[in-house]
Design a binder for these strands. Structure first.
Length: 475
RNA sequence: GGCCCCUUCGUCUAGCGGUCUAGGACUCCGGGUUCUCAGUCCGGCAAUCGCGGGUUCGAAUCCCGCAGGGGUCACCA
C-alpha cells in the first residue's frame, strides 16, 4: 500500500506546538515510508477564516522543513488543495447520496431545531436529529437548504493506531449536515470525500474527532469507501493545568520560537518527544533519526504537558552538537548590530567560545557583547563579588596594575596569555577567585564570560589594556 | 448530564505477569573541573505506579468498581 498522509489545517490563524505536532507525525510517517505528504486547506467556514493564515501555515511548514509533495502552492494530481476550490466535487458526491437515499434536505429552521433540543432535554433524552426526521422532505435546493446525511444507526468498534480499540454505541451516529445552506460542505463531509479522492492512507488528526468517528464510519459505508487508517494523538497540554494547549492560553506561534533562535531540529525533536519515544533511553534525535525511528504505535495515549524548560535544555544540547560550519550558518541572524564591523573569522571564534553555553541563539547578543563593543563600567560587579568587595580599592588597583604591566609585554597568543596569567597568580599570591575575577570583570564588564585567557585573546591586546586602564582609573 | 477516552517521580517518559526494593531525561540540591557563567563528570532528593476490590504462587502490568481529568454532543473544524 502506498503511504499517503496529509496535514489539513483550517486557516484560522497561526500554528502552535499542538498543530505542528500533528503535521510532524503525518510528515514522519510519509517520509519513513517513502510516501507522499500533502497539505490541504480546510477553508469551508468563511466566517472563521483569518486573513493571511494560509501563507502563515505554509511559511511555518517551510521553515520547519516539513516539506509537502503537493499543496496549495505546489500542484499535484490530488489538487486542488483548498476545499473552497473543490465545491463541485462535494456537490457531485452529495447528489449520489441523495439518489441512493442516504441524504436529504433539512427543512427545519434554527428555531424548530432548538425546540426539538429543548423538548428532548426536558424529557432527559439525548438529542438526536434522526429522531425528528421529517416525514416528507423537500427537494434539496443547493445553497438554500442544508443537506443532511441519512444515517443507519449501529454500534461501531474500530481500531486506532494510537488509541487502540475504540467503540461507541449507535447513539453516536446521527444525521449530520453534509452541505451547509451556503453551499459549502461541512468538515465532516468534505474531509471524507477529499481523503478518498486523494487516496489518503492514514488520517492523523486531533482527539476532538474521536467522538464523531462513528458518524464517519457510517458515511464511509454509505459511500462504499474503505476507511483509511486512523491515528489520533492525544492533545498537547498547556504548561499549567490540564487544559489543552491553546492560543487562548498563550500558546506561542511556532515561528516565534524560530525567531527567538531555537533550532529547527531541536524543536522537532522536542515536539516529537511530547508523547513519543523510541523505547530506549535515547532523548536526542536528529530529524533523520526521527524519520527512522518514529512510529505511531509508540505514541502514548495520554496528553503531554508542554514544558519549556525541557525545550530549553534540548535546544542547548542540539546547539552543542552543531558542526562549526552549521554553527556559523545558524547563528548568522542573531548577531548584535555591533558585530557588523567584524569579519567572519572573528565571529567564528567568538561563537566557538560561547557555543556550549548557549541555550538558544537569542542569547548571543548578551553573551558576546564585550567581544564587540566597549561597555560602561559596572561597579556592581565588584561590589556584588564577596571576595573582591572584601579588598579595598588600593589593593584592587594594585592587582590590576600588576596585570597591566605583565599583559603589556604579551603578544596575546593564548599560550602566552595563559602563562602570564598563571605567573601573575604566583607573583601576587592571590587565588584565581580574586585575581582572575577582577581581571575578567575589568575586561568584560559582564557578570559571566568564557574563560579569561580565551576571552582576552579575542578581545585583543589594545582593547584589553584599554579596559584595564579604564577600570584602574575608576578605582 | 449522555457517550467516548485518559491516569507511573513536579514535568517528559520506560514498563506490556516474576529481571521493579519501578529505569532514563528535564528541573532542583551537593561535589570535582586553577575565576564567573555555561558545559561536563560524580553523587543526591523525587512516583507504594489515582483509589478500592478481585484473578494469580506472583500485578505498575489482567478484570471489576469508584474518583479525578480530558474530548464530544454546531449549518466549527
Amino acid at each position: 500500500m502506498t503511504v499517503k498522509t496529509r496535514f489539513a489545517p483550517s486557516p484560522t490563524g497561526y500554528m502552535h506546538v499542538g498543530g505542528i505536532r500533528t503535521a510532524l507525525f503525518a510528515w514522519l510517517v510519509a517520509r519513513q515510508n517513502n510516501g507522499r505528504f500533502i497539505l490541504r486547506i480546510e477553508d469551508t467556514d468563511k466566517n472563521r477564516q483569518v486573513e493571511g493564515s494560509i501563507e502563515h501555515i505554509i511559511q511555518s511548514l517551510k521553515v520547519l522543513g516539513l516539506n509537502y509533495d503537493a499543496g496549495p502552492d505546489k500542484p499535484g494530481p490530488e489538487g486542488p488543495f483548498k476545499q473552497s476550490e473543490r465545491l463541485n466535487i462535494y456537490h457531485e458526491w452529495a447528489k449520489k447520496l441523495i439518489s441512493s437515499g442516504r441524504a436529504y434536505a433539512d427543512p427545519y429552521s434554527k428555531e424548530e431545531l432548538d425546540a426539538f433540543r429543548k423538548q428532548d432535554d426536558a424529557n432527559h433524552h439525548p438529542f438526536l436529529y434522526r429522531n425528528h426526521r421529517p416525514e416528507i422532505t423537500p427537494n434539496w435546493e443547493y445553497q438554500v437548504l442544508p443537506l443532511r446525511f441519512k444515517a443507519e444507526p449501529k454500534a461501531y468498534s474500530w481500531h486506532d493506531v494510537i488509541m487502540g480499540d475504540l467503540s461507541a454505541g449507535e447513539e453516536a451516529v446521527d444525521d449530520f449536515i453534509l452541505i451547509k445552506s451556503d453551499g459549502y460542505p461541512t468538515y465532516n463531509f468534505a474531509h471524507i470525500i477529499d481523503d478518498y479522492e486523494m487516496q489518503i492512507s492514514h488520517i492523523i488528526r486531533g482527539q476532538e474527532f474521536i467522538a464523531s468517528t462513528p458518524n464517519y464510519l457510517n458515511l464511509y459505508e454509505a459511500l462504499g469507501f474503505a476507511p483509511p487508517i486512523l491515528a489520533t494523538p492525544p492533545p498537547v497540554l498547556g504548561p499549567s493545568g490540564n487544559k489543552k494547549l491553546s492560543k487562548r492560553d498563550g500558546a506561542k506561534d511556532i515561528l516565534e520560537y524560530i525567531n527567538e533562535g531555537y533550532l529547527v531540529p531541536a524543536l522537532l525533536n522536542f515536539i516529537a518527544s511530547l508523547g513519543w519515544n523510541d523505547g530506549t533511553t535515547k532523548e536526542l534525535f536528529s530529524v533523520d533519526e526521527l524519520i527512522q525511528s518514529f512510529s505511531l504505535e509508540r505514541v502514548g495515549k495520554s496528553g503531554a504537558r508542554f514544558d519549556e524548560r525541557r525545550l530549553l535544555w534540548m535546544d542547548g544540547a542540539h546547539i552543542r552538537n552543531l558542526t562549526p560550519d552549521d554553527l556559523d550558518a545558524m547563528a548568522k541572524p542573531f548577531w548584535p548590530p555591533e558585530a557588523k564591523d567584524y569579519d567572519q573569522a572573528y565571529l567564528h571564534k567568538v561563537l566557538l567560545l560561547v557555543q556550549e553555553r548557549l541555550k538558544y541563539f537569542g542569547e548571543i547578543p548578551e553573551l558576546t557583547r564585550f567581544f564587540f563593543s566597549d561597555l560602561e563600567l559596572n561597579p556592581e560587579l565588584i561590589s556584588a563579588n564577596s571576595k573582591l568587595s572584601a579588598l579595598d580599592k588600593s589593593q584592587l588597583k594594585g592587582l590590576l596594575e600588576q596585570a597591566q604591566a605583565s599583559l603589556e609585554q604579551s603578544d596575546f597568543s593564548l599560550t602566552d596569555l595563559s602563562f602570564r596569567l598563571n605567573s601573575l597568580l604566583e607573583a601576587t599570591a592571590q587565588p584565581a577567585g580574586i585575581l582572575f575575577s577582577l581581571i575578567r570583570i575589568a575586561t568584560t564588564q559582564a557578570p559571566a564570560s568564557p574563560p579569561l585567557a580565551e576571552s582576552l585573546e579575542l578581545i585583543g591586546k589594545e582593547r584589553s589594556l584599554a579596559r584595564l586602564k579604564q577600570q584602574i582609573d575608576a578605582l
